[in-house]
């Protein structure tokens, strides 16, 4: 027993290294959202393309839909955008709504015209109020909302083709059936 005592510091080091190593793998930007499993916030917002038309939470009840928060000033949104365009093309049955977050209307419209519009429609959130209600703190963010209007999934930061294929698409499919 006594002869093994010299291993004690090594053991302590290994434990410490494991903890620190696990800590390195955590992404501090990914704060777990308290909204998952909770009803999506109430909203009634004008559309980006048709300012005179509004869409509310009630309008979307009974449907599974994706909310993708984006802005023309957001660099990471540009990064994920081609994946959304491809995803929308491949999954016609999936409802994707955009939330144009704190953007100027002409900028947002121009951005979609240039890069393609994967959205059924984009809600226009000029002052970021709905963004706060959805707990948005970094654009882009993506939510999946079920038929009952409950938030089932949240992705922070740009989605990748893999996330769309392996997480979001199967989830939407399972919620739709």
């Amino acid at each position: 027993m006594k002869s093994l005592k010299f291993l004690l510091p090594l053991g302590l080091f290994v434990v410490l290294a494991l903890f620190l190593g696990a800590g390195l793998k955590l992404n501090p930007r990914e704060v777990p959202s308290p909204l998952i499993g909770k009803p999506a916030p109430e909203f009634k917002l004008a559309l980006l393309h048709e300012p005179e038309r509004t869409v509310s939470r009630q309008d979307l009840l009974g449907k599974v839909w994706i909310l993708n928060v984006w802005a023309s000033w957001c660099v990471a949104c540009r990064e994920e955008h081609p994946d959304w365009v491809a995803f929308a093309r491949a999954n016609n049955s999936v409802l994707i709504y955009g939330l144009n977050y704190k953007d100027k209307r002409p900028d947002g419209l121009g951005w979609l015209q240039r890069l393609g519009n994967p959205y059924q429609a984009s809600l226009y959130d000029l002052d970021g109020r709905l963004g706060i209600d959805f707990g948005v703190y970094g654009v882009p963010e993506t939510f999946v909302i079920d038929r009952q209007g409950v938030i089932r999934y949240k992705h922070i930061g740009p989605v990748t083709a893999e996330v769309l294929r392996d997480k979001i698409a199967p989830l939407v499919k399972s919620l739709q059936t």
Binding site: V31, P32, S33, P34, L35, I132, D133, F134, G135, Y137
Partner: peptide
């Protein structure tokens, strides 16, 4: 605030 952003 906690309802939207969590205890964090």
């Amino acid at each position: 605030m906690t309802a939207r952003y969590g205890d964090f």
